[in-house]
Design a protein around this nucleic acid. Structure first.
Lengths: 218, 218
DNA sequence: CTCTCAAGTTACTCACCCGTAGGCTACCCG
DNA sequence: CGGGTAGCCTACGGGTGAGTAACTTGAGAG
């Protein structure tokens, strides 16, 4: 084949460091999201990245360092995507709605990022788990701020039936779970997903701060 | 030490197979819940179980078999715990409430079981992930049945703002997430946790089937 | 008392995979 | 043109952990 003389240098060529680093991180996110931290091998990552293994070590450091770099990049992306969608001067419910829409848009577009952050990051243990847990805690407190803001606006404080933090944890969990569900139902738009959640949660929450309470009827 | 002559046979002794199998499974759940599937080593499990490694292989098979046995035992326990608490002839909301209470009671009592099922099982991939996903799907459909039952009772079918399956996925996620949160707040009783969720979700859901709808206000 | 079989162990093999040593080649600058 | 440096690779060391072979010991049956 005379083409073979022309084509073989197709792979690799010399590229600047920054580009390689991005390729490696992309490959790493992909492989980590598929297999999880421990089952992912550096060989596979280097293979997917189209680069030899020592490149990874010289550019990004050890496996743990690499995973950390993935986590941080994807976490930053997610947070920026959400913050870009939120409008701080709207009322709490509209803020929440816009945040949710941005969130679902992100998950749909970067599902591997979401998988790594949501499922795999916790299984490593140690520093990363703490980092992720921390980020999630910040998200919860952000939501809690909205909830409490809406609550005090109506003159309701902490009560037996009402724990801002607990409810926010539940709400964030509901959002995450619905995100997972949506991965299997790509035809549902982010607006619809956000609306479902608003209807489920915000209406119930509104009742609560209006003084209406559900009690076991027995 | 003359006691050493009496005490050394304290570890191990000869025990019937069934007892050893339980010890091994207990140890495996403990270790898997701490480290996850891949990071857990058979040596550590055998050590915790107070048994040598070949015992595990003769009784429970390979590492994957062992993990499967753990998953199945804990999943069965969880389902039985929930079913034991539920009263089928009550109205939907009360059924849900009792189910939730049993669930939170189980999580508090067997937190390692919950960790293995919720966090670790999905990271193995392949058959187990499918099994767990399946079980979770059954839970969601069970909840969906309750939700739809309550909905049709009031004469509401599927609408744009209303997908029984989606809402149930969100609800189950909220319950799971609140369970994780509750692990860090052991002073909150299962009744309170269940009540929070009922207030958040059921009230909102009630509004929904009454025709009240949240809409973006812009 | 001894024969047999289940309970249990030590000590090994083998594969996999993280991390690195050392060398090669293209591009740039004087 | 010739060095220097940044991009890039092949090939290996070494450690860890799954799974096994082959041995030992106790307890009950005849």
């Amino acid at each position: 084949m005379s083409e073979d003389d022309q084509r073989p240098p197709e792979r690799a060529r010399r590229l600047p460091r920054a580009v390689r680093e991005r390729q490696i991180l992309d490959a790493a996110v992909q492989v980590f999201s598929r297999h999880g931290y421990h089952a992912a091998s550096m060989d596979e990552i280097s293979d997917v990245a189209g680069v030899s293994k020592p490149m990874i070590y010289t550019y990004l450091g050890s496996k743990e360092d690499l995973f950390g770099a993935c986590i941080r990049r994807e976490a930053t992306r997610l947070l920026e995507a959400i913050q870009a969608g939120v409008k701080p001067d709207l009322p709490p419910d509209m803020q929440l709605w816009h945040g949710l829409r941005s969130f679902y848009r992100f998950v749909a577009e970067y599902r591997e990022s979401w998988t790594v952050l949501h499922r795999q990051a916790l299984t490593v243990g140690g520093a990363f788990a703490a980092e992720i847990t921390d980020m999630r805690a910040r998200a919860i407190q952000l939501v809690a701020a909205l909830v409490v803001s809406a609550g005090t606006r109506k003159g309701v404080g902490e009560q037996a039936e009402f724990s801002g933090e607990g409810l926010s944890a539940a709400l964030v969990g509901a959002a995450e779970s619905l995100a997972d569900w949506a991965l299997d139902h790509p035809d549902i738009s982010d607006g619809v997903l956000a609306s479902w959640l608003m209807n489920l949660v915000w209406l119930g929450f509104n009742d609560l701060i209006e003084g209406q309470v559900w009690k076991p009827s027995e």
